[in-house]
């Protein structure tokens, strides 16, 4: 059994590499693969601007796609196990809602702070900070509640309630804002992988890594939680601490991804299910790296499609993830006839 997993990992690794190169080879400007490769290793390219395109735009975008796909997949996996619910995703804790509230306040609430400030406020960093602050505050509220509540399901419902409250506030804000502001907000909601410069990517990567590290230390408790909370306790698991760490990891991953790339739909929910269809196990020691690879691959593919290679258009990544992914999950479930978890 162990050996077959090794092959699956090897194959997934090769697919990931392939998708990575495919992703940076495709774009609105067609660049021959030889020159893509040359610009990667720092050799000269036939047209000088190609090097800029590859190094300054496509490469960070591909890395962003890997971080977003793997991070969302893993946080989805954590939530599905913690809440024992196949429908849970990274955003059940109200993290996206918090982020969208932050962004909505910056974009649409800017006029409230006064016209002069408005121009200053709406920069990319301010959006990132607003989204982070928003998701952090919601996270804080959920954490405080989860320390007091004994029932894990209550946390799920509280997360959903936070979502409703923030959605309502966003609606109120939208009602009073101009068409331009609305458009800007909606564009943020489309999600975007291609907006990050290297220094932003570095900040992204550091927070992401902390989230991944915490997830890795939670592997054992996640496996124990498969038995249910009472059995987990009888096996010596410190339930509150493990729950806190799992929620923290998810929040760091999903929060920073939403802050930097916008609310990416579907990936977090679907990737763990797709992975379980291939890796027939519930052991998180296998599932966690598998979800990592799978998430990265799917996100790279979605991004390649969203680029509409050789055309000047770029489709919203959020639409592509749902358009590609939802039918795949439906197909998988119809074929297998059950939602395994």
């Amino acid at each position: 059994m162990k050996a077959s997993y090794k092959y699956s990992f090897l194959i997934l690794g090769i697919i990931l590499l392939f998708c990575f190169f495919m992703n940076i080879s495709l774009g609105s400007v067609s660049i021959p693969f030889k020159d893509v490769f040359n610009s990667l290793i720092g050799a000269s390219t036939e047209v000088e601007s190609w090097e800029h395109i590859v190094q300054g735009y496509r490469l960070p975008k591909a890395f962003t796609a890997i971080l977003v796909g793997s991070g969302l997949g893993i946080s989805g996996l954590l939530m599905q196990t913690l809440f024992r619910n196949p429908l849970a995703g990274p955003f059940v804790l109200g993290i996206t809602s918090g982020a969208s509230l932050g962004v909505a306040l910056i974009i649409m609430g800017a006029s409230i702070f006064g016209g002069t400030l408005a121009g200053l406020l709406i920069s990319k960093w301010s959006l990132v900070i607003a989204a982070s602050l928003g998701s952090f505050l919601v996270l804080l509220a959920v954490l405080i509640v989860s320390m007091r509540v004994r029932d894990t399901m209550a946390i799920l419902i509280i997360g959903l309630m936070f979502g409703s409250i923030t959605a309502a506030v966003v609606s109120v804000l939208s009602y009073f804002s101009s068409a331009e502001q609305l458009q800007q907000y909606i564009f943020w909601g489309f999600g975007s992988l291609g907006n990050l410069a290297w220094n932003e990517l570095l900040v992204f990567f550091i927070i992401y890594s902390i989230g991944i590290l915490i997830s890795m230390t939670s592997i054992k408790s996640l496996n124990t939680l498969l038995l249910g909370e009472n059995y987990a306790k009888s096996l010596g698991l410190n339930l509150k601490k493990s729950r806190l760490l799992i929620i923290l990891a998810t929040s760091l991953l999903a929060g920073t991804i939403t802050a930097f790339a916008g609310p990416i739909a579907f990936i977090g929910l679907a990737i763990p299910h797709m992975t379980r269809q291939i890796f027939n196990t519930s052991n998180h020691k296998i599932l966690l790296p598998a979800v990592f690879l799978f998430g990265a691959i799917i996100m790279l593919i979605c991004d390649s499609i969203a680029q509409l290679p050789t055309s000047d258009y770029t489709l919203p990544i959020n639409a592509i993830t749902s358009l590609i992914g939802a039918p795949v999950v439906i197909w998988l479930l119809v074929r297998k006839r059950k939602m395994i978890f």
């Binding site: 496996n223 939680l225 498969l226 038995l227 249910g228 059995y231 009888s234 096996l235 010596g236 519930s282």
Partner: peptide, 23 residues
């Protein structure tokens, strides 16, 4: 303990489940 409640995930193999006793 052996409790009356069902295990949360029934996708585990029997071996995996028994092995969780070693946690």
């Amino acid at each position: 303990l052996v409790l009356t409640e069902q295990v949360a995930s029934k996708n585990m193999s029997v071996f995996e489940l028994v092995a969780l006793g070693r946690q």
